[in-house]
Design a protein around this nucleic acid. Structure first.
Length: 573
RNA sequence: GCGCCCGUAGCUCAGUCGGAUAGAGCAUCAGAUUCCUAAUCUGGGGGCCACAGGUUCGAUUCCUGUCGGGCGCACCA
């Protein structure tokens, strides 16, 4: 890749200065950067090498820069190297390199942008993990898309990725679910259940579960005590909910590799094992929590509980891993769960809703304690999405059973629009999702804008093919400056993928594609006033074939970017 | 009261482990349609990067404090 080639050139130039005795061999070069300058007028690439290394070299930045430039100008790929400002070195890339970059893109095709930087490192990404008490709704959507796109990104840079879903099937909310299902079971048996009582799940989605239970068990559990059926109904209801969730996720193109059950984890004694390890290191002790300050709790009473010393890791309070009735807290189970994940991966990433921000410290503390700091662990918080319809916020409330489901959204605007839109903001910023906007065919809808660029390219290729002209690399020397500018942008793609993966920020791909599409639309419109700038010139077969070769690969780059977001490119609109 | 996230153009947001004159879209104003998809494009105006200190050759970026907004704060997940 272009970028890596030039990184090597910089390295070579610095090596030469080492040989010349200007800088010492052990000088730290880790702060040396090579990046496209903000202002393209400054060149194609810019390095701060002279400014970063001048102290170690005992020279003024511009003097050191001059020596580096002397080395760089000897390299064929470097069209020019200039000192600017306080000591930047601005480079221009030769058109020969750009042409070979274009050939490289063509050779790699769908593989362009992928790398093996993360090879050998397994990353577990846990996302969605919605409670199995109902269908997927808006509140889950963004985390699902961000997690999935992040998993795609990590795979693109060569990581082995485990996509995981934690099923919270052990808490009291699944008892509530079982009771709600029992009511629907009675209903299926012909009883009049009336209004769903307060505290139970009212949604219709439990009706099929009740019906299935009725046909499986007949009247067996009609009159018996709750203890007779609770476990059976819990299992059946959770299974039903998970089937529903899986099919909702499939609508978004999301498929997890592993579903881990909290109940199974507990049955297998994992929390006990984790507790034993932590107790052996005096990181769990039996103690009493103080009443939190600034908040009045009426029925507060001191209780002795097994506490994890999360304060040793920066948390404000030690955290209980068991409740006073002896059952595990959510945290107690979660800590064991993360320990389990860590046994099969080198790095862990959790995608959480921002409403769980308060629990980040304790779980990070737990992972650090259990893996003795060996497992890298990141929690990515995803902010709320406000649903808008005609500019008016759309309310959703799970309690009333009245909420916008993912199935509704996908049906209304389509999978690709949902996914792309969810990636047009960085995850930790709040965002609005306006039903009208995401399907609008206009410049300010990036989904459309990027797709339109791709469709335009395909349309041009089709039209050219009708005229008997096909893309070809035999006359790339016919390409002009504006066209090489497009290649420069395309050449940034691998770097965007790398940095987006490293920063765990899939939205960067969306912004890049928007920029790339803008560059293409601009270039395309040059042909409006200047027929000689049109891609398709029927009487200029050689030039046209080269231009077609360029836009074909620009289309490929867009396609590859969209694929990283789980969005399919369209060939016509 | 405490913790986490955020504060960038009128609006919605980008801004690469600290870099050059802080960018884009919308809105606004002025233009391009006998032309490969004008569903698009070109240009103008618009900024105390919330505020005040600190670190640095250099701060929108890092640190501290203040103000403003969001989320969360016993055995609920």
């Amino acid at each position: 890749m272009l970028f890596h080639i030039f990184q090597k050139h910089i390295d070579k130039a610095l090596d030469a200065l080492v040989t010349a005795g200007d800088i010492s061999a052990d000088t730290d070069r880790s702060n040396v950067t090579l990046e496209p300058p903000r202002d393209p007028a400054h060149g194609d690439l810019s390095t701060n090498a002279a400014m970063v290394l001048c102290k170690a070299a005992g020279m003024k930045p511009r003097n050191l820069a001059a020596k580096i430039v002397d080395q760089l100008t000897q390299i064929d790929d470097v069209a020019s190297a200039e000192i600017a400002g306080p000591g930047f070195i601005n480079l221009r890339v030769s058109e020969t390199v750009l042409a070979s970059e274009l050939l490289e893109i063509d050779r790699l095709g769908p593989e362009y942008g992928r790398s093996d930087k993360g090879k050998g490192v397994t990353v577990n990404v846990e996302y969605v993990s919605a409670n199995p008490t109902g269908p997927m709704h808006m509140g889950h959507c963004r985390g699902a898309v961000v997690g999935d796109a992040l998993a795609d990104l990590l795979e693109a840079i060569g990581h082995e990725v485990i996509r995981e879903y934690y099923v919270n099937d052990a808490g009291s909310q699944v008892d509530t679910l079982a009771r709600s299902a029992h009511l629907r079971y009675l209903e299926a048996l012909g009883e009049d259940i009336g209004e769903i009582p307060e505290g139970l799940y009212p949604g219709d989605y439990l009706k099929p579960v009740g019906a299935a239970l009725a046909s499986e068990f007949g009247e067996d559990y009609r009159d018996g005590p709750e203890s007779a059926w609770l476990l059976t109904f819990r299992k059946a209801a959770v299974a039903g909910m998970m089937d529903m969730i899986r099919s909702d996720l499939a609508l978004l193109g999301i498929e997890h590799d592993v579903f881990s059950s909290e109940a199974e984890l507990q049955a297998a004694g994992k929390p006990e094992a984790a507790e034993a390890i932590l107790r052996s290191r005096d990181l769990v002790y039996d103690g009493v929590l103080e009443q939190p300050k600034g908040k009045v709790i009426e029925d507060w009473e001191p209780v002795k509980l097994p506490l994890f010393r999360s304060t040793q890791f920066g948390d404000d309070q030690d955290r209980p891993i068991k409740k006073s009735d002896g059952s595990w807290t959510y945290f107690g189970g979660d800590l064991a769960y993360h320990f389990q994940k860590a046994s099969a991966a080198d790095e862990l990433i959790d995608i959480w809703g921002a409403d769980h921000s308060g629990t980040v410290k304790r779980i990070k503390a737990a992972v650090a304690a259990l893996t003795e700091g060996k497992t890298k662990f990141d929690v990515k918080l995803v902010q709320m999405v406000r649903l808008l319809r005609n500019g008016e916020p759309e309310k959703m409330s799970k309690r009333s059973g009245n909420f916008v489901t993912i199935a509704d959204m996908v049906e209304e605007v389509g999978k690709d629009a949902v996914r792309f839109t969810m990636l047009t903001r960085k995850a930790d910023a709040q965002m609005d999702f306006d039903f009208a906007k995401v399907t609008e065919a206009s410049r300010d809808n990036p989904v459309f804008y990027v797709q339109y660029a791709h469709a335009r390219i395909q349309s041009t290729l089709r039209k050219a093919a009708d005229e008997g002209i096909l893309p070809s690399d035999t006359h790339l020397d016919r390409l002009e400056t504006e066209e090489f500018d497009l290649v420069k942008m395309m050449a940034q793609f691998p770097r965007i993928v790398e940095s987006a993966a490293a920063a765990r920020e899939p939205h960067r791909v969306a912004f890049y594609l928007n920029d790339l599409a803008a560059a293409f639309h601009g270039h395309y419109n040059l042909g409006n006033d200047r027929p000689d700038k049109r891609i398709l010139m029927v009487n200029e077969v050689e030039t046209t074939s080269a231009r077609l070769f360029l836009v074909k690969n620009l289309g490929q780059t867009i396609r590859n970017g969209l694929a990283l977001m789980g969005v399919e490119a369209v060939d016509s609109m």
